[in-house]
Design a protein around this nucleic acid. Structure first.
Length: 1164
RNA sequence: GGGCGCAUAGCUCAGUGGGAGAGCACCUGCCUUACAAGCAGGGGGUCGUAGGUUCAAAUCCUACUGCGCCCACCA
């Protein structure tokens, strides 16, 4: 089709010259270049302040050195669909692309390559700077690959704004954020047991560890008991069980449960640690579960997080026996020093066996942590690391909880306000109490429909409400049972502070209309330990902003449905109306991920953010140790740099050495001499009798330089990659400057990502968004499924089941890949990928192409037809086939809009597929051949106008999914010439999204149900007629004459259409047709269609066929009849259902009669 | 141990209270002048099991079975 638009001077060239099949390769490249040249993807700064609504997405940045896989295809196709749809909706769209430096992954790849090339054995061989040069070179070489692949897929990102997480500006954001959180005391350094990856030799966060069920053993070891003189006692020992015998070399105690009678008398005595021959104490600790193993636990403080905690509790020493490389240390004893931990395990077991200290070995299955990156078992490792206490947690929890409610509605409870008497609060209170007493509400439970819970009301519940609250709150008592019944649950949280009686607190939301004013009623319900739900009226409380949450709401703001008795209000509207901080609503799609999110968010542990790597953002902290004698001797040394009073007081008051810990560090701010803008902050992190250690932090390069010049050294560690990724939505838009881009495009509209990085990325972005922007970073999060192969296995390199998307594009075209993927990716489900899907996409593109080719065969389009208003169509000339397709189009647009609103892309594609292929091509286009090959020119032109209208809309509806072929055909059909400048003239990308027909348009075009039904019946009869032909084995080549005995009076066009669709020589209409006996017949509400056969009729066959049909009709009749005959059916069923059943019954009965008549007509 | 999800045609999945659907696969016949990457016709399902609610259940409730995912410090 590229031939069509290639040369504008010869539009609509001879279609016969077009290739018979769509050839995507040339078109895709040409069209992508065209879009780039036109600047179609650019979020135009000139338009930044225009009136268009903004729409924005930030790409989940792929690994800079990665290559495109099917997960990317799914993810980015969805984003592109959203972006293209938003442009067609008239929005100003920013889709911001970029890449991630991906610390561990990239470093590992480069290190491995260098090792392979023989350049190094280990990265230490060339040193940090040299190694980083290699990584940057690698990045320059491979960094563009995935970006180009995204372009091949058709992604409409604003490439002028491409970002990389190690861009200088981005790095400054990371530093600034670090400093800010450090200053707030949220970032701290601590000595802890962390997850250690011995292969990559770095710490990992908890999220980077995969727990994998692993077969292992449980070894039971004998630790001899020592008597009070320190001598081992014969035959007296403690048995301990362990999965990791090699760690026993670092044991410092044996722990038992203090309530375990078997061992209590031993507490305080000592045991002999075998192999090390070291006496270790026996301690009592609640952690020990007496029922597991032997009830005795060996305590290895340096290599187990629980043991470390026990060591802290009991003041035990810490002996490190496994080093950072996963090999045993000198402390492990000379027999084991230098052995790998796994070798050491065998050696220890062997040695213990020899000494008769191994009691037994059981097979044991347990969960073992593996590094997500290097796939080796992680080692709990005691080390000094940086940690972050997550910021803005409560807001981050609340906004998503609210999001869960956004689609929900709550019924409005209506009261007049006259239920209670009284003019002041005291009187109202009395009235409310006596009403409650009279009604017997106190001490009673009421059901809540949203949760099914029974909620208990007590007198105290009520009186809570009466203190310091306004009269509305008291009046609301009159509505109590109704409010409890209708309120919806929106949030649950643990009771604060923890209380043994109360488990959780549940927040409900009700809506109350009182004296014709609408109120939002938050209700708090406490869940007691025994499971009872206690209504606590104190709940009507002030909102977080201090504003009363119960407030008057203007009704017109709210989407209240005009039902006479039960009004329903959308919860999001309700909350918005009371100034609840709803700026923060995030909706998850599918919604259920909100639960997973909430669970994780309420069980947060501090994030280990330091990594012992070289590729990444260096931690902006510098340290230097000062000898106190030096400082005393040379006050100038201190004075030059530190405020003299502060330092001298530190030196004089010999404080106890202290280490930094969580909490506000006492920071002092200082300017760099001569550079007042270059600031740093410092504090004392460690002090002993001889020296103090100073730690300084800054995000200023100048200050950093100065610190180095003063003998400070920078922390060698880098930050976790996700510590830069979590800033992505605003760091890419110019933060911390107040840029136009931020003002216009933050918060972003949609985020599209996989649920596997919900914790890594999404949750952290939400917290960062609140902390640094005061707003969450996006409104909607769409979670894709995981792409699997057609057997349901995850795609992986080792299985070889991961197809190369670029090969698929080369074979089938990018549009085909997009369409096929989207069609098989339902919301919230994993995608079982099959190349067949792409093939289907290719076939669909071809169908689209050929339908347009068919159109062009019938002459070129003219400027006045196919415009947006359908004014080219003359309603008087429309036949019911035209009405039918226009109705189907209208219906399709409505379905597509609804599916888009719910992010159900697979439904959009199946609707498009059904509409275009089954409805438009299979029925309508075939039916138009009657008119197009007919003699009536006016009708022919009108038919072409309908085709053009439908095609121009179908192309636009398809464009988000099939950008290339639709753009090509848009120009090929010259749709562009008929659309205004900047709205479809240059490109389909900016053409307006088709709207369903208005009532006025429908009326003008004569689109009513009757016309469409006539066409439906006609097509159904065609199907039956074709079936007759098959049943009687009449080859399609044989032209047949059908006879039609119509039920009504069909139009001439209907008869022509019947003839064309039946591939008949003629269809003779004869209301009084008397068929020869045994003439095969098919019938429905359109009429009776006869297939008069000239030759011999197989009467037996026709009889059998009719009997089969009759049986079916009778079965249906019996079924409907039995339903209607149910005694209660007519009473209880809604009228329209009853009507429907009666109509169906009548239809089937008519069919029964027709068939019976035909059977009677048969001889024999 | 806790949480979430899934079970409908041979396969992959739509279908949230009222006549069991789509695509692929399969069978039959067609190179009919847009398209064989196509056209036409057809076969195929007691909707995982057992109860319950309802006039009415694939759909709502309960239990069970099987599969999948996530979280969790029992050595």
């Amino acid at each position: 089709m590229n031939h069509i638009a290639a040369d504008k001077s010869t539009p609509a060239a001879d279609p016969g010259a077009l290739p018979k099949a769509y050839e995507p390769q040339a078109v895709e490249e040409k069209r992508y270049k065209f879009w780039l040249a036109q600047g179609c993807f650019i979020a135009n700064p000139a338009r930044v302040n225009s009136q268009r609504p903004a729409y924005s997405i930030v790409i989940p940045p792929p690994n800079v050195t990665g290559v495109l896989h099917m997960g990317h295809v799914l993810n980015n196709t969805i984003q592109d669909i959203l972006a293209r749809k938003a442009r067609m909706d008239g929005k100003e769209v920013l889709w911001l692309p970029g890449t991630d430096h991906a610390g561990i992954a990239t470093q590992a790849v480069v290190e491995k390559t260098l090792r392979k090339q023989g350049v190094i054995k280990h990265r230490d061989d060339i040193g940090r700077d040299k190694f980083l040069e290699h990584v940057w070179a690698w990045k320059e070489k491979h960094g563009g690959i995935i970006i180009n692949q995204l372009k091949r897929l058709g992604c409409s990102c604003d490439w002028t704004r491409e970002r990389f997480t190690m861009d200088p500006a981005y790095s400054r954001c990371v530093q600034r954020v670090f400093v800010e959180l450090y200053r707030k005391g949220l970032i701290y350094r601590g000595r802890r047991i962390v997850n250690w990856d011995p292969a990559a030799r770095t710490a990992l966060s908890d999220e980077e560890v995969d727990m994998i069920e692993t077969k292992g053993h449980l070894w039971y070891l004998k630790y001899p008991l020592l008597d009070d003189r320190g001598q081992p006692k014969a035959n007296e020992y403690l048995a301990v069980a362990t999965t990791r015998p090699e760690t026993m070399l670092g044991d410092e105690a044996v722990a038992v449960n203090p309530k375990d009678n078997r061992y209590t008398k031993l507490v305080g005595r000592k045991a002999l640690l075998p192999l090390q021959n070291k006496p270790i104490p026996i301690v009592a600790d609640d952690f020990v579960d007496p029922k597991f193993g032997t009830g005795c636990v060996k305590v290895t403080p340096a290599h187990d997080p629980n043991d470390y905690q026990m060591a802290l509790r009991h003041g035990l020493p810490v002996t490190v026996v496994i080093g950072p490389d996963g090999k045993m240390t000198r402390e492990a004893g000379e027999d084991f020093d230098g052995l790998d931990r796994m070798e050491a395990r065998e050696a220890v077991v062997e040695e213990l066996t020899e000494q008769g200290l191994l009691l037994k070995t059981d097979d044991y299955i347990h969960n073992l942590g593996y590094s997500q990156r290097s796939h080796v078992p992680v080692e709990p490792y005691l080390s000094e690391q940086w940690f972050l206490k997550y910021p803005s947690v409560n807001q981050a929890i609340a906004c998503v909880e609210l999001g869960r409610l956004a689609d929900k509605s709550v019924s409005v409870v209506r009261f007049t306000g006259a239920e209670l008497s009284g003019t002041d609060r005291a009187e109202l209170r009395e009235s409310a109490l006596s009403l409650a007493r009279e009604q017997g509400w106190i001490g009673k439970s009421f059901p809540n429909e949203d949760t099914g819970w029974q909620i208990l009301v007590r007198r105290k519940s009520l009186s809570h409400a009466f203190n310091n609250r306004n009269a509305v709150v008291i009046r609301a008592v009159a509505a109590l049972p109704e409010l409890i019944r209708t309120a919806v649950l929106w949030r649950s949280e643990p009771h604060q502070p923890p209380h043994p009686r109360f488990k959780r607190v549940h927040h409900f939301l009700g809506a109350l209309e009182l004296a014709e004013e609408l109120y939002c009623v938050p209700i708090m319900v406490k869940e007691l330990a025994d499971g009872r739900m206690l209504y606590d009226y104190k709940a009507i409380r002030a909102a977080p902003g201090g504003k009363p949450l119960v407030a008057h709401l203007p009704k017109e703001k709210l989407g209240i449905q005009p039902a006479p008795n039960v009004a329903v209000v959308n919860v999001a509207d309700l909350l918005a109306g009371v100034n609840f901080p709803m700026t923060g609503v995030i909706c998850f799609h599918p919604e259920r991920w909100a639960k997973t999110y909430a669970h994780w968010m309420t069980n947060l542990r501090d994030w280990c953010i330091s990594r012992q790597l070289w590729w990444g953002h260096r931690i902006p902290v510098w340290r230097r140790k000062y000898l106190k004698t030096d400082l005393r001797r040379s006050p100038r040394l201190a004075e030059a740099f530190w405020p003299v009073d502060r330092i001298s007081s530190l030196v004089e008051n010999a404080q106890r050495p202290s280490t930094a810990s969580a909490g506000e560090p006492k920071l002092s701010e200082k300017q760099t001499p001569g550079r007042p803008e270059a600031r740093y902050e410092w504090h004392v992190v460690a002090e002993d009798s001889d020296s103090i250690e100073i730690e300084a932090v800054t995000d200023s390069d100048a200050a950093a330089e100065y610190l180095v010049s003063q003998g400070f050294t920078q922390d060698p560690d880098v930050l976790d990659t996700w510590f830069s990724s979590w800033l992505w939505p605003f760091a890419t838009m110019g933060w911390p400057e107040k840029t136009d881009t931020l003002a216009r495009f933050y918060p972003t509209s949609d985020l599209v990502t996989g649920p596997d990085i919900l914790f890594f990325w999404v949750a952290r972005m939400i917290m960062a968004g609140y902390e640094f922007m005061g707003q969450p970073p996006f409104r909607n999060v769409y979670f894709t499924g995981i792409i699997r192969d057609k057997l349901g296995r995850k795609m992986s390199k080792s299985l070889g089941n991961s197809p190369d998307p670029l090969e698929l594009i080369a074979k089938f075209g990018a549009d085909a890949l997009r369409f096929g993927t989207m069609r098989s990716a339902p919301l919230g489900q994993d995608v079982l990928f099959d190349e067949k899907d792409v093939e289907l996409g290719r076939n669909f593109c071809n169908k689209l192409y050929n339908a347009c080719r068919f159109r062009l065969m019938h002459g070129k389009t003219t400027a006045q037809i196919a415009n947006e208003t359908l004014s080219e169509i003359q309603p008087a000339l429309l036949v019911n086939d035209d009405h039918w397709i226009l109705s189907r189009l209208d219906q399709a647009i409505r379905e597509i809009d609804a599916a888009f609103a719910q992010y159900r892309f697979s439904e959009v594609t199946s609707t498009l597929y059904r509409f275009f292929w089954n409805e438009f091509c299979d029925w309508y286009v075939e039916a138009t051949k009657a008119a197009l090959y007919g003699p009536d020119t006016a009708r022919k032109n009108n038919t072409l106008a309908v085709i053009d209208s439908v095609l121009s809309r179908a192309l636009r509806l398809l464009h988000p999914f099939l950008p290339f072929v639709t753009e090509e055909l848009w120009h090929g059909l010259e749709c562009n010439l008929r659309f205004p400048t900047d709205a479809g003239r240059e490109t389909i990308m900016t053409a307006p999204w088709p709207k369903p027909f208005s009532q006025a348009e429908k009326k003008r075009l004569g689109l009513d149900a009757a016309a469409a039904q006539t066409a439906d019946a006609k097509y159904e009869l065609v199907g039956k007629g074709r079936n007759l032909r098959r049943e009687f084995n009449i080859p399609p080549s044989k032209k047949l004459k059908f006879a039609l005995k119509p039920a009504g009076t069909p139009a001439q066009s209907d008869v022509e259409v019947l003839r064309v669709l039946l591939n008949a020589e003629s269809v003779d209409v004869d209301p009084g047709f008397a068929p020869p006996k045994g003439t095969p017949m098919a019938s429905n509400s359109f009429g009776e269609l006869y297939l008069p056969l000239a030759g011999a009729i197989d009467i037996a066959a026709e009889k059998a066929r009719l009997r089969k049909e009759l049986a079916k009709a009778q079965a249906e009749i019996a079924r409907i009849q039995s339903k209607i005959n149910q005694p209660l059916f007519a009473q209880k069923v809604p009228p329209h259902v009853l009507e429907e059943h009666r109509r169906r019954l009548a239809d089937w009965r008519a069919r029964e009669t027709q068939i019976n008549n035909a059977l009677i007509g048969l001889p024999g």
